[in-house]
Structure formats: C-alpha cells, structure tokens
Design a protein around this nucleic acid. Structure first.
Length: 712
DNA sequence: AATTGCTAAGTTTTT
DNA sequence: CTTAGCAATT
C-alpha cells in the first residue's frame, strides 16, 4: 500500500501513466527509485498481474534494493492467492541476470549446453591470449585488454563500432572474433556481451521464444536508461515493440559510461522508435541545497545535446561552495585531511559524513597517506575486487573445472597450481594437441595417442590429474545430498592448496589472509541464496516462517526457471547455481561499512550515492576533463562527470585544484579546469580572497592536537 | 621452478 | 616514479 498523494505532481504523473511508452527524466536526487517502486506497486493495485511486470537495472545492488522496497510495499494478502499457490512477483533484475534466466531455458536451441558457464574479464583475457599466441602476428598490437575492448565495442554495435568502417580493421576484428567465439563455444562458455547477444539471436531464430517473452513481460521498465548500449536497446525494443508498454527512467546529464558502449542517444532519440512517448521531468531535488544545484545547473547547461532540466530544492540556499587552490597535490591532500579534522572538532561532523571524490584511482594514494598521518579512518571504494585476487580466482577455476572439465580457461589455470608436474611446456603442447583435434584440453589429455607424445613421468602426472578431476566430480554427481563446503574442504586439503599459498607469499600473515578469503567463500557454498544472504543479514531476524513458507518466501520468485527445491537438487546443480550467482554478482563484501569513516571514491563510482559533505579534488585541466577526452572528443561526458560529482553533495561542497602535480616522478605544472569558470560566481567563495587561507599545517596540527588532548 | 631484470605504460568499470 | 608483465637466467 502506498499513498500517491505523498508524491509531488510530476512523480504522481510518472507513477500513474501505466500504458504506452513513458520517459521519466529523473535528475540527480529527484526520488527516482521511489518513483519506480511506487509505479510497480501502483500497477499491481490497478489489477495488473505482478508476474507480467519486468523491471531491469544495471547493478545487482540496484535490483536488490528495488526488489526489497517493492516487497515491503506490497500488501500481505498477495502472498498467497485463493489456489494456495505462491503469487507471482514482479521480475526485478539486471539485464544480465534476465538474459541468464532466458538462456537457461532456451540456450540448447542455440547449440550450447544448458549448464553453460559465464566468463568474466580475466577468463576473457585468458581466451584472447590463447588466440593471440596461436596467431603470433607480432606486428599487430597484441595487448589482450585492448583487443578485448575493441571486440566488445565491435559486438556491442552502436556509434562506437564505426571505427570498424575501415575494411582492414573490420576484417581483423572479424577474424579474431570468430576465433574467440568458437573458443568460448567449445568451452560451453559465454561472456557478458554474449548474454545479451545470444538472447537477441534466440529471438531472431526462434520467434516463438520471443513471443513467449513478450507475453510474459507485458510491462517493462528500465532503470538508468542512459547507460544502455545498442544491444540492450534492441533487447528492450524487441520485448516492447508491440505492447508499447515501456517505461524508461534515466538522466541524459548523468551519462558517464559512453566509453564502455553506453549510448545516450537511446534516451535522447527515444521518439524515433516511440513517437508517442510521454515525457515526465523530475526536477525537484530532495538531496542538496540550492547553491549546489545552481552550480550543477550552471555547469551542465554548457552541454549542447541534452533534454534540458533545472534542478531546484526546497532546502534553502545553503553554504557557498569553497574553492581552494594549492601549490602541489601533496599540499592539497594534507589540507583535505585537515579540513575533515577541523570539521570534526569544530563543527562536530563525523568522518562518515565526508567523501572525497577524484577522477583517477591513482589520486587516492596521496590522500590515503595524508589521512593515515592524521589518524583519520577511511574506506577506499573500488580498487582491487575480491574476485581479482589470485586465491579466489584459483578456487573458482577449480570449481568450474569440476563442473565442466572442458572449460579450457579454467583448467589451464589450475592444471599446475599447485605444481603437479604439468609444466608450462606440457600444457602448451596439450593445448596445441587440443587445437589440432578440435577438442577440449581435457579430452586431449585423456587420449592415449596424445599421451604417447610425453615422457613417462609426464604421462603419470596427466593421468593422476585426470583421476583427481574425475573422482572429485563423481562426488558432485552422486545422489547423496553432499555438503559442498565439506566437499571443497576435502579436495583443498588433498591438493594442499594452503601450502601453495604459504610458499608464494612472503609473510605468513599474507598467506593467512589469502587462506581466510578462500574459507569465507567456502561458507557460502551451501548457502542457498548465496551471496544475497550475506548482503542481507537483516532478513535473518524476520519472524519465523511456517513450514510452507520456508520453500516459498525467501527466494524472490524467479519466474523462468522451475521453482527451486533445494533439498532435491543434486550437488552439481547447486554448484552451478552458486557459480552463476557469483559471476553475476561480482560486487561483494568490502562494503562492511563498519563505523565512522571517510569515503574515498572515484567520480564514476560515486554515481547514485550521496554524502553530506563532499570534497572534489584535482579539478584541473588534463585530469577533469581528462587529457585523453580531448583526443576522443568526449568533453561533454567529462562535463557530465563533473556534474555528477557536484550533485553528490547534500550540504557542503569544496572543490580544489593545484598549480603543480607530481606525475611520472616529476612535478608538472597544472591549470584550473575550464569547467570551474562555468560555476556561477555567486555560488562560489574563493578560499584566498575570502581570507580563509588554509592554516599553515604545523600551526594547525599543533592547535588541534592540543584541542583533542583537552577533549579526550 | 623460482628469481631476477628489463621494458613499457601510465582513465573511468559493471555485468 | 611505480608497477605489471614477460623473458631470460640460475
């Protein structure tokens, strides 16, 4: 239940327009998530069957949050209908998990096996490297990352693919791509782009599958629509071309992911495909002061192609934006730290209310050391993810190999980790043999005529490796309800992976930490909802459900696969599901926001977040806009990035730039960002002209040290 | 198999 | 300047 009168008039309009195409232009902080969730609930209250509603987001975090908010708002009675059946729930998920659900049902029609695996970036890099090494065309730039980026752009289509109008580049791309795709297909693997593209192919080749999906999803909503790429648009368009019930929510001014294929044009030119679209602008901001919003408006209006918006708020003017200029980046970092400490002691602002935003990750270094010196607690968002760690990658590669030994990338990763006599040379030769025979490496290893090419000792190593894989696999296939945690513990011990970690790490602490990471994952193996449960410990304290509901209630009903029956599913299915969830939910842990700490974050990663007090550092020409953006002609996107950064602030905003910055070892002169001139002068207070000179650092620290001593 | 030394690059990142 | 990746060496 919800009260529509609690929404502002524009929000009400957005919520109550249920039929036909709708574009909700939701400026920063205008209550976007609230509008989407209310719209879903409103549709259900108007009698639309919940099962017919689909809402897609980009991140798992957003999907989870929306799912929860919808569940909270839906009346209890809809938990069970007259038949005693579990009522259908709206489908709220990411683009990619939607495609996984569709593919798990239909992928056999496309020549893949139902238990396909999803390759993440490092798996992709592995596959690319494999191909490049077999081509070894030395003259071509052979940076696997660059190649992968090109392929993704090529496949994603859209304006960025125009690079490939050059016939030669196109031919090369097509060649590498076809090798790449057959390599993945041979491993029964798909990558993130494939998830979308294969569904499009399915729709094209099997119209009945498309028809079923159209019937299933009569009402479609898309969040962060400005971030969709060409393929994602095609998907959405395929679903809604007939029903016309498409509601997209987004903000062209916050489109900052063009470099990875997002097409703002999808939002700007929506009328091309949906001429009857009804446009609703949300301009009332519930986050920031008017000074901050005026600054944001002033900056963004310099962009040419956009649907105009003017953010306003009822929160009053607020403090002016403080503009600080420093001689060097070192001084900048020190003063930022000191600002935070001043705020804490003088204005009682907790660390947790402060965020420092920067353009590039490398800038965090100096900031971190300044904060450490001032004994300020902080959390750095981003950086190396849990899944990029070696031990986690190894562990997952083992799991993938047990599930599907024909997954070459996984198998090659773990074949000699820990060392078991399958040296690089051996694996190299096995790989070549597999390519000759057009089979997987595992299959090649099993053939005696391949084995004959090796020395007796190596053959022995190959055989015992095969035996190890098959024996461990056999346990998975058994009918007993094996505890996956114990199972994994057993084989980890049998290969003595812990010793491997001890050997490769300099300090015992480091290897201990890595081992702990693995153990952390072990705990989740048998957790039915995998990571989701980790992220939502709150749900554990919910009232004890009845026996019936144990099966029905917890899992947000996923409509496409058959209903989950945990106890009867065999271990290998459970493992497959675990891996599937993991590869779709890379965003993990780290975020144990325990206690009071300052947030260090890139402007990109800050999108969607808000902080009471924000400092944007390094607002210099060459950093923001980044020097590379001039070459690529993406100044607009850089300006939007600045706009996103500004609109993160609720109460106060400080912006700083330096006259010199240490880069590649030497201090290079820097100039203020041209964007700074676009800030309306009446919103800004210059630290120097206002006489708020940064306190000389020595005097400052002494004074505050004394003060702290007095307080504590 | 592990260590050392050289070279080259050096934005933004989710699924 | 730093670091990651790779090749050559012990």
């Amino acid at each position: 239940m919800f009260n529509i009168d609690a929404l502002n008039p524009e929000q009400q309009q957005a919520v109550s327009t249920v039929r036909g195409p709708v574009l909700i232009l939701a400026g920063a902080g205008t209550g976007k998530t609230r509008v989407i969730t209310c719209r879903i609930v409103h549709m259900i209250e108007r009698g639309i069957s919940p099962g017919k509603i689909l809402a897609v987001t980009f991140t798992n975090k957003a999907a989870k949050e929306m799912q929860e908010r919808v569940n909270e708002m839906l009346p209890r009675r809809s938990r069970r209908d007259s038949d005693g059946e579990a009522p259908e729930r709206p489908t709220v998920c990411t683009f990619h998990s939607l495609c996984v659900r569709i593919l798990r049902q239909h992928i056999e029609k496309l020549g893949y096996k139902r238990n396909f695996v999803i390759y993440d970036e490092s798996d992709q890099i592995g596959a690319i490297k494999k191909i490049l090494s077999s081509i070894h065309e030395g003259k071509v730039k052979s940076d696997p990352h660059a190649i992968l980026g090109l392929l993704s752009r090529f496949r994603g289509g859209g304006s960025r693919a125009s690079v490939f109008e050059d016939a030669e580049a196109r031919a090369l791309a097509e060649h590498v791509l076809s090798r790449y795709q057959s390599a993945l297909h041979a491993c029964n693997a798909v990558d993130f782009d494939d998830l979308i593209l294969l569904v499009l192919r399915l729709f094209k080749e099997h119209p009945e599958a498309l028809e079923a999906c159209r019937e299933r999803f009569r009402y479609v909503m898309v969040d962060e629509y400005q971030d969709t790429n060409a393929a994602q648009f095609e998907l959405v368009h395929a679903l809604t071309r007939d029903s016309r019930n498409l509601c997209v929510v987004g903000d062209d001014d916050q489109s900052i992911y063009g470099w990875r294929g997002a097409e703002v044009a999808n939002l700007l030119d929506l009328e091309k495909h949906f001429p009857e679209v009804k446009v609703v602008k949300l301009e009332q901001n519930y986050r920031s002061t008017n000074v901050i919003l005026k600054a944001a408006n002033g900056v963004i209006r310099n962009n040419a192609r956009r649907r105009g918006k003017q953010l306003w708020s009822s929160k009053g003017e607020g403090e002016k934006i403080l503009l600080q200029c420093f001689d060097t980046d070192e001084e900048e970092s020190k003063t930022v730290a000191q600002n935070i400490e001043d705020d804490r002691l003088v204005r009682r602002i907790p660390w947790g209310d402060q965020a420092i935003l920067f353009r590039t990750n490398i800038q965090s270094r100096l900031l971190e050391s300044a904060l450490r010196q001032s004994k300020i607690r902080y959390q750095l968002i981003g950086g190396q993810s849990f899944f990029d760690r070696r031990e986690i990658r190894d562990f997952l590669a083992y799991l993938k190999t047990f599930l599907n030994p024909h997954d070459d990338v996984a198998l090659l990763r773990i074949a000699n980790t820990p060392a078991r006599g399958l040296s690089d040379v051996t694996m190299e030769r096995l790989l070549a043999a597999s390519q000759e025979r057009r089979s997987s490496v595992f299959t090649a290893m099993r053939h005696t005529d391949v084995q004959e090419r090796f020395q007796a000792r190596t053959v022995e190593a190959i055989r015992s490796f095969i035996a190890f894989i098959e024996e461990t696999r056999a346990i998975l296939e058994s009918k007993d309800p094996v505890c996956l945690g114990n199972w994994a513990e057993d084989w980890l011990r049998s290969i003595d992976y812990r010793a491997e970690l001890t050997r490769s790490e300099k300090t015992p602490e480091a290897s201990e930490a890595r081992w702990r990471n693995v153990w952390e994952l072990l705990d989740d193996l048998d957790d039915p909802d995998g990571i989701a449960a980790v992220a939502r410990p709150v749900e554990a304290s919910a009232p004890t459900p009845t026996t019936d509901e144990v099966v029905l209630a917890p899992a947000p009903a996923t409509p496409l696969p058959p209903p989950r029956r945990r106890l009867t599913r065999n271990p290998s299915e459970r493992l497959a599901e675990f891996l599937g969830q993991l590869s779709l939910d890379q965003e993990r842990a780290e975020d144990k926001e325990t206690g009071d700490q300052v947030t260090l974050i890139t402007m990109h990663a800050a999108k969607g977040l808000e902080f009471r007090h924000v400092q944007i550092v390094g607002v210099e020409d060459g950093l923001l806009p980044h020097s590379r953006s001039k070459l690529e002609g993406t100044l607009d996107e850089e300006r939007r990035l600045f706009y996103v950064a500004i609109t993160r602030a609720q109460r106060t905003l400080r912006i700083s730039h330096c006259g010199g910055r240490k880069r590649y070892g030497q201090v290079l002169p820097c100039h203020p960002s041209p964007f700074l001139k676009e800030l309306p002068p009446e919103c800004v207070e210059d630290a120097e002209t206002a006489g708020i000179n940064p306190v000389s650092s020595e005097a400052g620290t002494d004074w505050f040290a004394a003060m702290r001593a007095a307080i504590e």
